[in-house]
Simulated assay, not measured.
Amino acid sequence: MKKFISVIVIIILILSYGIYRAFFDMNNLPEGRLISEVHSPNGEYTIKAYISDGDATTSYAVRGELIFNTIKKNPKNIYWNYREDNAKIEWIDNDTVIINGHKLNVPNERFDFRRK
Rank of each mutant, 00 (worst) to 15 (best):
M1H: 10
M1Y: 07
K3E: 13
K3G: 08
K3P: 00
I5V: 15
I5W: 10
S6V: 05
S6H: 02
I8Y: 09
I8N: 11
I8L: 15
I11P: 01
I11G: 04
I12Y: 04
I12E: 02
I14E: 08
S16V: 05
G18N: 13
I19Y: 10
A22D: 02
F23R: 07
F24W: 11
N27E: 12
N27C: 02
N27Y: 07
N28D: 10
L29W: 03
P30K: 09
P30C: 11
P30E: 08
E31N: 13
R33P: 00
R33V: 14
L34F: 09
I35C: 09
S36T: 12
H39M: 10
S40N: 04
P41M: 05
N42K: 14
G43N: 03
G43M: 02
E44M: 03
E44V: 06
E44G: 02
T46L: 10
T46A: 06
I47E: 11
I47M: 05
Y50Q: 09
I51T: 14
S52D: 07
D53V: 06
D53P: 03
D53T: 07
D55E: 15
D55W: 10
D55Q: 13
A56F: 13
A56H: 07
T57G: 12
T57R: 13
T58V: 04
T58N: 13
S59N: 15
S59R: 08
A61F: 07
A61L: 05
V62C: 11
G64F: 06
G64M: 08
G64I: 11
L66V: 07
I67G: 06
N69M: 09
N69I: 02
T70F: 08
I71Y: 07
I71N: 08
I71L: 10
K72H: 14
K72T: 14
K73N: 09
K76T: 05
I78L: 02
W80I: 06
Y82P: 00
Y82E: 08
Y82K: 03
D85K: 14
A87P: 01
A87C: 02
A87K: 03
K88R: 08
K88G: 00
I89G: 01
E90T: 06
W91P: 05
I92Q: 06
I92S: 04
I92P: 01
T96D: 01
I98M: 03
N100S: 07
N100Q: 11
N100L: 13
N100H: 10
G101F: 10
G101W: 05
G101L: 07
H102P: 00
K103R: 15
L104M: 04
N105D: 00
P107D: 11
N108M: 05
N108K: 14
E109S: 10
E109V: 07
R110P: 00
R110K: 14
F111K: 03
D112V: 01
D112E: 02
F113R: 00
R114P: 02
R115D: 03
K116T: 13
K116I: 14
K116H: 12
K116E: 15
